[in-house]
Amino acid sequence: MGSWPTGRLLSVAARVLERRFDEALAGHGLTHAGLIALHHLVAGPLAQRPLAAQCRVAEQTMSRTIDRLARAGYVSRRPDELDRRRVVIELTEPGAGVLAALRRAERESEALLGSLADYEHFREQLIGLVVALERAEPEQIAQQAE
């Protein structure tokens, strides 16, 4: 593996980690989309459209995710006090509990990311990478590869 290009290493790591996270999430009746929605609801209740935007998914996808989360008891729905036509999604106590347990597992579980020597430094580097990649234009990437 020492000779592999960095892109391949990242790709393999992502696939392995995704499988492990899938197993951990399934044990709680969650998907990646559900976990992301719970994460965004920690800051407070949101209507479906802004929640979908924050999660970077279509409203239809968010609707299915919210349905699953509500059936599991991780979120509740209530009418918006300012606009009765809108429904607000709110994190429940069980939802906050499962999110906390999964965050703890990510940091501490050897099967997930707990085996990292410096978890916070690794996160900072990943955030920097994602930000840089999102800023890079596809044309720039193609030109640099030539």
Rank of each mutant, 00 (worst) to 15 (best):
R49S: 12
P50T: 05
L51A: 04
A52S: 10
A52G: 07
A52H: 01
A53N: 09
Q54N: 10
Q54K: 12
R56M: 15
V57E: 03
A58F: 10
E59M: 07
E59I: 10
Q60E: 13
T65I: 09
T65D: 04
T65N: 02
I66G: 02
D67S: 10
D67G: 04
R68G: 04
L69A: 02
A70S: 11
R71H: 07
G73W: 00
Y74M: 05
V75R: 02
V75G: 03
V75S: 03
R77Y: 11
R77H: 13
R77M: 11
P79N: 10
D80N: 08
D80K: 00
D83R: 01
D83M: 01
R85W: 14
R85K: 11
R85M: 13
V88M: 14
L91G: 03
T92N: 02
T92H: 00
E93A: 15
P94I: 06
P94Q: 01
G95I: 04
A96Q: 12
A96S: 15
A96T: 11
A96C: 09
G97P: 01
A100F: 09
L102Y: 03
R103H: 10
R103Q: 15
A105N: 05
A105V: 08
S109Y: 02
A111Y: 04
A111L: 11
L113V: 04
L113P: 00
L113S: 10
A117Q: 11
D118L: 09
Y119H: 09
Y119A: 03
Y119D: 03
E120S: 14
E120D: 15
H121R: 11
H121Y: 10
F122A: 15
R123Y: 11
Q125E: 15
Q125T: 07
L126F: 13
I127N: 07
G128A: 05
L129T: 07
V130F: 09
V130Q: 06
V130P: 00
V130L: 14
A132D: 06
A132H: 05
A132I: 05
L133Q: 13
L133C: 13
E134L: 15
E134C: 10
E134W: 08
A136W: 01
E137V: 10
E137D: 13
P138M: 08
P138R: 02
E139D: 13
